[in-house]
Nucleic acid binder design. Structure first.
Lengths: 343, 343
DNA sequence: TGTTCTACGTGTATCGTTCTACGTTTTTCA
DNA sequence: TGAAAAACGTAGAACGATACACGTAGAACA
């Protein structure tokens, strides 16, 4: 085992060869590479020319031994949710003109895997880490933050001191949903939330839902069902809701693709979607727009979240140590799945 | 710029400290780490105990300097397509009991970005690279393969010598689609393919479509439209097809979410989906199952593809040099979007 | 004319691991 | 019993880049 392929490393140009070709010292080349102080424009040009000529590319492992690797780690909980693609677009935009590259890992929503992925990113000397939808405890996040600059997207902890957070206001988002549903004439509004690791964005959304219901004088109808992200379980939970003794006339789902599954189950049960039951999702992913779904949802500007998180983590790498908590306001996008008028 | 955060690297336990704690040489610890030849069970146990006690974790950068990093690079063209989640599941399963970790990068279907991501993975000393849906030229792939063990998923090149491929039989998949549609009574079957970088899986699917049409005596009705992956363009192309002089009665789309968009446009144009126009996708992603979509699609066992690709790349890392081309048969999953009977 | 700055470059120790080369002990076998 | 072979363990040189400590030349100042 573990034998590197023969001669695979061959042909790699080193900083030493560049230095020789350019007729300067190794240190000078390194300085050019890092835009460090102490190189004249002439020398820089000479070195650049040699690098281009020889096709030199710095080896991240070697850089990592003493300095940075110019790599950012991005941890996603799940590859199925297209919302993360929006975040990724923002991250890529933010990285456009920098030396940094992103590497992604998936934590699959399992706490054990999440720490595994994060540890693995620390081992691989990522200069900074962006965690999406983390379910880690505060101590755990603090511990990560002592090792690497850390920014959490989709994790509410406004009193966190050691890492930044980037969020939409989930509580307000849920509130908007309830207000919208009430305005559309729905009363028995249930919420379908995620079962599993406790997540702060979900508890915020649940809180917003409760507040909205109470605000509308529907405190007695509060009904939160929980289901894991597995389709079979979602179907089961949905049937339970829709076939139970007191059928809700609207269901607010914690994310879009769960809502799509709920629409599916409702349809199969012979319920018409806006009329018999209204459905709302969260994240406003591209699937909401399809005519067959036409799903009302909350837009939380994933691209902006990704952009901001990237900005923050790079700022931290460059030395910022005071905390920043960025919050974007959510926006409700109404579609047919909650419009009783024209259905 | 570029100053590592102060004291961040602190607290990292090195192999030297483990050796000291266990009372053995540094090299002995390294051998334990790599399961290398020449350590007794007693010594191994002693070292393992010290590693656990001190919380030692090997630093990938340092390993990469001389040996492997135990990291695999996975390049995806796009985060929006949930099909890749299936592949990823297979990859993760294959990696379960190994030392390897995966890092993902996105190439966003832009050739320039793709080489960028791959180069960046080579710079970061990935031990092997899995490329999904690559649009690189053969020379380009050969060049990558000289540097790192390489496996391509979703790229047909049965005569490639330097890298392995893992595919479903796309031509047969498309053939199955046409046969299914013909059997269901459709005749004017159009295909909606992807515009942009030439991709071998798409040309295979187009070929299969052509063959199927000719086989059914419908060679005169062959009609392949092309559109980029941007929703606006897909809508435009679809309208063109459905509002043109000779409206097709079925559309075969190169991937599921394009098919969903086509269903959406057709619905908005007042066409009923299985009756007026039949729609078929490819990949059999979870969205196909939703009642509101109920999309007929081709299952290409993404999980199996991921599993095999991972197996192959690890074999290559361990020294295999003869080529292997793995092909899985596609399977058609019929749903309502092509069933004219019960519409 | 000397002294002090500053800008520009260089030499080299160093990061944490792997791996080669080489001893020493234990086992095997004639 | 002795010699060869196998097993075990160690020392120390790499790997490629960074960054510290240090020279040197020219400019600025008195």
């Amino acid at each position: 085992m573990a034998q590197a392929g023969e001669g695979r490393r061959n042909g790699r140009v080193t900083i030493r060869e560049v230095a020789e070709d350019a007729g300067v010292s190794v240190a000078a080349v390194s300085k050019v590479l890092r835009d460090a102080y102490g190189v004249s424009e002439a020398l820089r040009a000479k070195v650049r020319a040699s690098m281009d000529k020889l096709g030199y590319r710095p080896l991240a492992s070697a850089r990592g031994m003493r300095g940075q690797t110019y790599t950012l780690g991005l941890v996603l909980p799940d590859l199925r949710n297209p919302f993360f693609a929006d975040i990724m677009t923002g991250v890529n935009n933010a990285l456009e003109r920098t030396q940094y590259q992103v590497m992604m890992g998936i934590s699959s929503s399992t706490a054990k895997l999440e720490t595994g992925v994060v540890d693995s990113m620390i081992d691989r000397q990522m200069d900074g880490i962006i965690l999406i939808g983390s379910t880690e405890t505060r101590e755990s996040l603090n511990s990560i933050a002592t090792k690497k600059p850390l920014v959490a997207i989709g994790h509410h902890d406004p009193s966190a001191e050691t890492f930044d957070t980037v969020n939409n206001n989930d509580q307000q988002g849920a509130l908007l949903v309830v207000r919208h549903l009430v305005a559309a004439g729905y009363r028995d509004i249930a919420m379908l939330s995620l079962q599993g690791e406790p997540s702060s964005i979900l508890s915020e959304r649940e809180m917003g839902y409760r507040r909205g219901m109470i605000e509308a004088g529907l405190g007695g109808a509060i009904n939160i069902a929980h289901s894991p992200q597995i389709m079979r379980d979602v179907q089961f939970a949905t049937r339970r809701l829709l076939q139970g003794p007191k059928r809700p006339d609207a269901i607010f789902c914690w994310t879009d693709f769960i809502a799509l599954e709920v629409i599916s189950v409702a349809t199969e049960l012979g319920l018409r979607v806006p009329q018999d039951v209204g459905i709302v999702g969260y994240d406003n992913t591209m699937y909401c727009d399809f005519a067959q779904n036409s799903l009302t949802s909350i837009d939380q500007s994933g691209e902006l979240l990704g952009l901001q998180a990237t900005r923050l983590v790079i700022e931290r790498i460059n030395g910022r140590s005071d905390v920043e908590h960025f919050v974007v306001p959510p926006r409700l996008v109404a579609r047919r799945s909650t419009s009783r008028k024209e259905g």
